[in-house]
Design a protein around this nucleic acid. Structure first.
Length: 272
DNA sequence: CGTGGCTCCTGGCGGC
DNA sequence: TGCCGCCAGGAGCCAC
Protein backbone atom coordinates (compact mmCIF):
# COMPACT_ATOMS: atom_id res chain seq x y z
CA UNK A 1 0.00 0.00 0.00
CA UNK A 2 2.37 2.67 1.11
CA UNK A 3 2.92 5.35 -1.51
CA UNK A 4 3.78 8.97 -0.78
CA UNK A 5 0.57 9.92 1.11
CA UNK A 6 0.72 6.84 3.35
CA UNK A 7 4.40 7.38 4.11
CA UNK A 8 3.76 11.06 4.90
CA UNK A 9 1.04 9.93 7.29
CA UNK A 10 3.47 7.49 8.94
CA UNK A 11 5.98 10.33 9.22
CA UNK A 12 3.47 12.50 11.05
CA UNK A 13 2.58 9.53 13.25
CA UNK A 14 6.22 8.94 14.14
CA UNK A 15 6.59 12.68 14.89
CA UNK A 16 3.58 12.63 17.19
CA UNK A 17 4.58 9.50 19.08
CA UNK A 18 8.26 8.66 19.03
CA UNK A 19 10.52 11.73 19.05
CA UNK A 20 12.76 12.84 21.94
CA UNK A 21 12.38 9.62 23.91
CA UNK A 22 15.41 7.58 24.93
CA UNK A 23 15.51 4.20 23.26
CA UNK A 24 16.16 1.36 25.69
CA UNK A 25 15.84 -1.67 23.43
CA UNK A 26 15.93 -2.61 19.74
CA UNK A 27 14.84 -5.98 18.47
CA UNK A 28 15.00 -7.29 14.90
CA UNK A 29 12.45 -10.07 14.54
CA UNK A 30 13.02 -10.78 10.86
CA UNK A 31 16.47 -10.11 9.43
CA UNK A 32 15.07 -10.13 5.89
CA UNK A 33 13.88 -6.58 6.35
CA UNK A 34 17.37 -5.24 7.03
CA UNK A 35 19.09 -3.28 4.28
CA UNK A 36 22.88 -3.50 4.46
CA UNK A 37 22.83 -3.35 8.25
CA UNK A 38 22.88 -5.85 11.11
CA UNK A 39 20.76 -6.01 14.24
CA UNK A 40 23.88 -5.29 16.27
CA UNK A 41 24.65 -2.12 14.29
CA UNK A 42 21.10 -0.89 14.75
CA UNK A 43 21.28 -1.56 18.48
CA UNK A 44 24.60 0.27 18.79
CA UNK A 45 23.27 3.28 16.90
CA UNK A 46 19.90 3.46 18.61
CA UNK A 47 20.03 2.19 22.19
CA UNK A 48 20.69 5.06 24.58
CA UNK A 49 19.83 7.57 21.87
CA UNK A 50 16.72 9.42 20.71
CA UNK A 51 15.01 10.16 17.42
CA UNK A 52 14.89 13.91 17.02
CA UNK A 53 13.37 14.73 13.63
CA UNK A 54 11.97 13.12 10.50
CA UNK A 55 12.07 13.62 6.75
CA UNK A 56 10.31 11.95 3.89
CA UNK A 57 11.49 11.57 0.34
CA UNK A 58 9.13 9.77 -2.00
CA UNK A 59 8.14 6.54 -0.27
CA UNK A 60 11.09 6.63 2.14
CA UNK A 61 10.85 7.77 5.75
CA UNK A 62 14.03 8.93 7.46
CA UNK A 63 14.38 9.54 11.19
CA UNK A 64 17.31 11.51 12.55
CA UNK A 65 19.16 9.88 15.44
CA UNK A 66 20.80 12.28 17.93
CA UNK A 67 24.27 11.12 16.86
CA UNK A 68 24.31 12.52 13.31
CA UNK A 69 23.02 9.42 11.56
CA UNK A 70 19.60 8.52 10.18
CA UNK A 71 17.33 5.50 10.42
CA UNK A 72 15.70 4.73 7.06
CA UNK A 73 12.36 3.00 6.64
CA UNK A 74 10.83 1.73 3.42
CA UNK A 75 7.39 0.15 3.75
CA UNK A 76 7.29 -2.21 0.79
CA UNK A 77 3.74 -3.25 0.03
CA UNK A 78 2.53 -4.05 3.52
CA UNK A 79 4.62 -2.03 5.98
CA UNK A 80 3.08 0.01 8.78
CA UNK A 81 3.97 1.62 12.12
CA UNK A 82 2.34 1.04 15.50
CA UNK A 83 3.02 2.82 18.76
CA UNK A 84 1.63 1.07 21.83
CA UNK A 85 2.35 0.33 25.48
CA UNK A 86 1.44 -3.25 26.24
CA UNK A 87 2.83 -6.14 24.22
CA UNK A 88 -0.61 -7.65 23.85
CA UNK A 89 -1.10 -4.86 21.29
CA UNK A 90 1.98 -5.95 19.35
CA UNK A 91 0.89 -6.22 15.69
CA UNK A 92 0.86 -9.70 14.10
CA UNK A 93 3.77 -9.17 11.68
CA UNK A 94 6.09 -7.15 13.86
CA UNK A 95 9.53 -7.32 12.21
CA UNK A 96 11.36 -4.54 14.07
CA UNK A 97 10.60 -3.34 17.56
CA UNK A 98 11.92 -0.28 19.37
CA UNK A 99 11.26 0.24 23.07
CA UNK A 100 11.45 3.66 24.74
CA UNK A 101 12.25 4.64 28.32
CA UNK A 102 8.57 5.39 28.93
CA UNK A 103 8.05 1.65 28.24
CA UNK A 104 6.09 2.32 25.05
CA UNK A 105 7.04 0.48 21.85
CA UNK A 106 7.23 1.42 18.17
CA UNK A 107 6.77 -1.59 15.88
CA UNK A 108 7.44 -1.88 12.16
CA UNK A 109 4.79 -4.33 11.03
CA UNK A 110 5.29 -5.85 7.58
CA UNK A 111 3.37 -8.92 6.57
CA UNK A 112 5.15 -9.61 3.28
CA UNK A 113 8.64 -8.67 4.45
CA UNK A 114 9.21 -6.48 1.41
CA UNK A 115 9.88 -3.43 3.57
CA UNK A 116 13.42 -2.40 4.54
CA UNK A 117 15.09 -0.80 7.56
CA UNK A 118 18.54 0.73 7.22
CA UNK A 119 20.97 3.43 8.30
CA UNK A 120 22.45 6.35 6.40
CA UNK A 121 24.71 9.30 7.15
CA UNK A 122 22.41 11.91 5.64
CA UNK A 123 19.17 12.21 3.66
CA UNK A 124 21.02 13.76 0.73
CA UNK A 125 23.48 10.92 0.58
CA UNK A 126 20.65 8.38 0.80
CA UNK A 127 18.77 10.04 -2.07
CA UNK A 128 21.90 10.13 -4.21
CA UNK A 129 22.83 6.53 -3.49
CA UNK A 130 19.36 5.33 -4.38
CA UNK A 131 19.30 7.65 -7.42
CA UNK A 132 15.85 8.85 -6.38
CA UNK A 133 14.18 11.55 -8.44
CA UNK A 134 12.65 14.68 -6.90
CA UNK A 135 9.86 14.15 -4.39
CA UNK A 136 6.52 14.08 -6.17
CA UNK A 137 5.01 16.80 -3.95
CA UNK A 138 7.88 19.21 -4.60
CA UNK A 139 8.66 18.61 -8.27
CA UNK A 140 8.14 21.62 -10.55
CA UNK A 141 6.98 21.46 -14.15
CA UNK A 142 10.36 22.38 -15.63
CA UNK A 143 12.07 19.52 -13.81
CA UNK A 144 9.31 17.05 -14.68
CA UNK A 145 9.39 18.10 -18.34
CA UNK A 146 13.15 17.59 -18.45
CA UNK A 147 12.81 14.15 -16.86
CA UNK A 148 10.01 13.11 -19.23
CA UNK A 149 11.95 14.31 -22.27
CA UNK A 150 14.55 11.63 -21.58
CA UNK A 151 11.97 8.86 -21.34
CA UNK A 152 10.32 6.51 -23.77
CA UNK A 153 7.75 3.94 -22.80
CA UNK A 154 4.32 4.63 -21.36
CA UNK A 155 3.32 7.35 -18.94
CA UNK A 156 2.05 5.11 -16.14
CA UNK A 157 5.32 3.23 -15.83
CA UNK A 158 7.29 6.45 -16.05
CA UNK A 159 5.31 8.06 -13.22
CA UNK A 160 5.96 4.96 -11.10
CA UNK A 161 9.70 5.07 -11.78
CA UNK A 162 11.22 6.33 -8.53
CA UNK A 163 14.27 7.67 -10.37
CA UNK A 164 12.07 9.95 -12.46
CA UNK A 165 9.87 11.18 -9.63
CA UNK A 166 9.78 9.69 -6.13
CA UNK A 167 6.59 8.70 -4.34
CA UNK A 168 4.06 7.51 -6.92
CA UNK A 169 3.00 3.86 -7.03
CA UNK A 170 0.36 1.83 -8.81
CA UNK A 171 -2.76 3.28 -7.15
CA UNK A 172 -1.85 6.94 -7.30
CA UNK A 173 -0.54 6.69 -10.86
CA UNK A 174 -3.99 5.42 -11.85
CA UNK A 175 -5.66 8.26 -9.94
CA UNK A 176 -3.37 10.95 -11.37
CA UNK A 177 -3.88 9.75 -14.95
CA UNK A 178 -7.63 9.42 -14.45
CA UNK A 179 -7.86 12.98 -13.14
CA UNK A 180 -5.60 14.13 -16.00
CA UNK A 181 -7.76 12.22 -18.54
CA UNK A 182 -4.65 10.57 -19.96
CA UNK A 183 -4.55 6.90 -20.98
CA UNK A 184 -1.94 5.04 -18.89
CA UNK A 185 -0.42 3.46 -22.01
CA UNK A 186 0.16 6.82 -23.68
CA UNK A 187 3.75 7.10 -24.85
CA UNK A 188 5.55 9.81 -22.92
CA UNK A 189 7.06 11.17 -26.14
CA UNK A 190 3.63 11.79 -27.66
CA UNK A 191 2.30 13.92 -24.81
CA UNK A 192 1.81 17.58 -25.61
CA UNK A 193 3.15 20.33 -23.37
CA UNK A 194 -0.33 21.16 -22.13
CA UNK A 195 -0.99 17.52 -21.23
CA UNK A 196 2.30 17.28 -19.35
CA UNK A 197 1.37 20.42 -17.45
CA UNK A 198 -2.00 18.93 -16.53
CA UNK A 199 -0.30 15.75 -15.30
CA UNK A 200 2.12 17.81 -13.19
CA UNK A 201 -0.80 19.67 -11.62
CA UNK A 202 -2.69 16.45 -10.90
CA UNK A 203 0.39 14.85 -9.33
CA UNK A 204 0.41 17.72 -6.89
CA UNK A 205 -3.36 17.98 -6.37
CA UNK A 206 -4.03 14.25 -5.96
CA UNK A 207 -1.13 13.67 -3.57
CA UNK A 208 -1.88 16.83 -1.59
CA UNK A 209 -5.52 15.81 -1.28
CA UNK A 210 -4.55 12.30 -0.20
CA UNK A 211 -2.16 13.65 2.43
CA UNK A 212 -4.90 15.96 3.73
CA UNK A 213 -7.13 12.88 4.06
CA UNK A 214 -4.29 11.10 5.87
CA UNK A 215 -4.37 8.56 3.03
CA UNK A 216 -7.75 7.28 4.20
CA UNK A 217 -9.52 6.37 0.95
CA UNK A 218 -12.94 6.75 2.53
CA UNK A 219 -12.29 10.45 2.93
CA UNK A 220 -11.18 11.01 -0.67
CA UNK A 221 -13.38 13.19 -2.93
CA UNK A 222 -16.34 11.45 -4.52
CA UNK A 223 -14.99 11.97 -8.03
CA UNK A 224 -11.85 9.95 -7.32
CA UNK A 225 -11.24 6.73 -9.22
CA UNK A 226 -10.20 4.92 -6.04
CA UNK A 227 -13.82 4.41 -4.96
CA UNK A 228 -14.59 2.46 -8.14
CA UNK A 229 -11.24 0.75 -8.58
CA UNK A 230 -12.51 -2.84 -8.81
CA UNK A 231 -13.78 -5.17 -11.53
CA UNK A 232 -17.19 -3.84 -12.55
CA UNK A 233 -16.52 -0.38 -11.13
CA UNK A 234 -17.83 2.64 -13.07
CA UNK A 235 -16.28 5.95 -14.00
CA UNK A 236 -17.20 8.54 -11.33
CA UNK A 237 -17.57 11.15 -14.12
CA UNK A 238 -19.42 9.40 -16.94
CA UNK A 239 -20.50 6.03 -15.45
CA UNK A 240 -18.81 4.05 -18.21
CA UNK A 241 -17.63 0.68 -16.93
CA UNK A 242 -13.95 0.90 -16.06
CA UNK A 243 -11.39 -1.08 -18.00
CA UNK A 244 -8.75 -3.21 -16.29
CA UNK A 245 -5.51 -3.78 -18.15
CA UNK A 246 -2.01 -4.92 -17.31
CA UNK A 247 0.96 -2.69 -17.96
CA UNK A 248 4.24 -4.54 -17.48
CA UNK A 249 2.87 -6.75 -14.77
CA UNK A 250 0.87 -4.12 -12.90
CA UNK A 251 -2.89 -3.76 -12.90
CA UNK A 252 -4.21 -0.47 -14.22
CA UNK A 253 -7.80 0.79 -14.08
CA UNK A 254 -9.02 3.44 -16.48
CA UNK A 255 -12.10 4.93 -18.06
CA UNK A 256 -11.99 3.89 -21.74
CA UNK A 257 -14.15 6.89 -22.67
CA UNK A 258 -12.40 9.65 -20.73
CA UNK A 259 -8.85 8.40 -21.10
CA UNK A 260 -8.56 7.63 -24.80
CA UNK A 261 -5.17 7.44 -26.39
CA UNK A 262 -4.76 9.82 -29.35
CA UNK A 263 -4.98 6.86 -31.75
CA UNK A 264 -7.26 4.47 -29.92
CA UNK A 265 -10.01 4.95 -32.53
CA UNK A 266 -7.67 3.19 -34.97
CA UNK A 267 -7.09 0.30 -32.62
CA UNK A 268 -3.52 1.41 -32.02
CA UNK A 269 -2.10 1.68 -28.55
CA UNK A 270 1.60 1.58 -29.33
CA UNK A 271 3.01 4.08 -31.77
CA UNK A 272 6.60 4.21 -30.61
C1' DC B 1 21.29 3.50 -20.90
C1' DG B 2 16.34 2.21 -21.08
C1' DT B 3 13.02 -1.28 -20.82
C1' DG B 4 10.54 -5.50 -19.80
C1' DG B 5 10.40 -9.75 -17.22
C1' DC B 6 11.39 -12.40 -13.19
C1' DT B 7 11.72 -12.76 -8.41
C1' DC B 8 11.40 -11.98 -3.55
C1' DC B 9 7.55 -12.73 0.48
C1' DT B 10 2.95 -13.86 2.82
C1' DG B 11 -1.83 -14.43 2.94
C1' DG B 12 -6.58 -13.93 1.17
C1' DC B 13 -9.77 -15.28 -2.25
C1' DG B 14 -12.20 -17.58 -6.05
C1' DG B 15 -12.68 -21.76 -8.58
C1' DC B 16 -12.79 -26.62 -8.97
C1' DT C 1 -14.22 -28.73 3.03
C1' DG C 2 -9.67 -28.73 0.94
C1' DC C 3 -6.34 -27.59 -2.21
C1' DC C 4 -4.29 -24.75 -5.78
C1' DG C 5 -3.25 -21.04 -8.57
C1' DC C 6 -3.58 -16.29 -8.82
C1' DC C 7 -3.25 -11.84 -7.19
C1' DA C 8 -1.86 -7.77 -4.21
C1' DG C 9 -0.90 -0.72 -3.51
C1' DG C 10 7.10 -2.26 -4.25
C1' DA C 11 11.32 -2.53 -6.35
C1' DG C 12 16.08 -4.81 -7.21
C1' DC C 13 18.34 -7.44 -10.58
C1' DC C 14 19.35 -9.22 -15.01
C1' DA C 15 19.11 -10.00 -19.97
C1' DC C 16 18.34 -7.79 -24.19
Amino acid sequence: MPELPEVETFRQYLDATSLHKTITQVEVRSTQILRAVTEKELQEKLVGHRLQSTRRHGKHLLAEIDDQSWLTIHFGMTGSLYYFKNMDKDPPHDRFLVTFSNSYHLAFDCQRKLGRIGLTQSPLRFIEERKLGPDALRIDSTTLDAALAKRRGCIKQTLMNQQVVAGIGNLYSDEILFQSKVHPESRVQTLEAETRKRIREEIHDVLQTAVACRADFRRFPKHYLIHQRYVGGRCPRCSTELERIRISGRTAYLCPRDQETPFSHLGLTDIS
